[in-house]
Amino acid sequence: MTAADAESAAREEPVRMTATTPVQAAPARPRRLGVFAAVAVAALLADVLSKALVVAKLKNHAPVRTLDGVVYLVYTRNSGAAFSVGAGATLLFTLVAAGIVAVIIRFAAKLRSVAWAISLGLILGGALGNLGDRIFRAPSVGRGHVVDWISVFADDGHVWPIFNIADSAVVCGAVLAAILAIRGIELDGARPRRSRS
């Protein structure tokens, strides 16, 4: 076999993958820190601004009826957790909220899923909103009472406990997180592989 024949055979022979042939992995999804931060800031600002407006306009005002009585705007202060549970454990709730904020920020570096970024952004923004009340509002640092102002179907919270935008953000974020977890979607956006039958 001449050199020309050998070169021609080499060109025609297919390339075979061996155990040592490197396989390119799929490119990693981009991090979603921008989405996470934007959602958290939006939720926090909406909560802080709404509470400032409520304190300024509704503190010494009768409840305001809106949407034909579906929603009432009423100024209240809550020393407990959601639904006024644990009114005597304000400091404990402050510490728990601070812990939740720390855990979410730690997980943020792994975020490559837009849905998870939205979920954790809502939870972080809501937690920071109520944590701000606990730290900066009366009666004292760490024991501040949260400003609640949305009451549905009644003006006194007897149909559904009075809440605020931070509470809504946390609940919506938690519901979305539960849906993502049930569907098996990871923080990095990976989905469970379907088994072939």
Rank of each mutant, 00 (worst) to 15 (best):
A154S: 15
A169G: 00
L92S: 09
D155E: 15
S79D: 06
W160S: 02
L120G: 00
R134V: 03
A89W: 14
V159G: 01
G34T: 09
G80K: 02
A19H: 07
V23M: 11
L176F: 07
L128A: 04
V141W: 14
G69P: 00
L128D: 02
R196D: 11
A190T: 15
G157R: 01
A98M: 13
V39S: 02
I165K: 00
R183C: 07
S8M: 09
I100M: 09
I123Y: 03
S79I: 02
L91R: 09
V48N: 10
V85Q: 09
I104C: 06
T90L: 05
V48Q: 15
G144W: 05
R194V: 12
R196Y: 10
L111P: 04
R112N: 10
G132E: 02
V159H: 04
L128Q: 03
P139N: 07
G86T: 02
G125I: 07
A62P: 04
C172A: 13
V71M: 12
A38D: 02
A154E: 07
I105C: 11
S195V: 11
W160M: 02
R16Y: 10
E12Y: 08
A98Q: 05
L53G: 10
S151T: 01
L111W: 07
D167R: 00
A87G: 12
D188A: 09
V171W: 00
R191K: 14
D47M: 10
A62E: 13
E13M: 11
A6V: 08
R191M: 11
A40E: 02
G129C: 05
G126M: 09
K57T: 15
A97P: 02
A52T: 07
G189Q: 11
L176P: 03
L49N: 06
A138S: 14
A38R: 01
T90M: 05
R32P: 05
L122C: 05
A87N: 08
N60W: 10
L33W: 15
S8T: 12
R191A: 12
A10G: 10
L131N: 01
L120Q: 03
I165E: 01
I100V: 15
M17F: 13
F93K: 02
F36N: 00
D155N: 14
V103E: 09
V146A: 05
V103D: 10
I135P: 03
F153Y: 14
V147I: 12
N60G: 08
V171A: 01
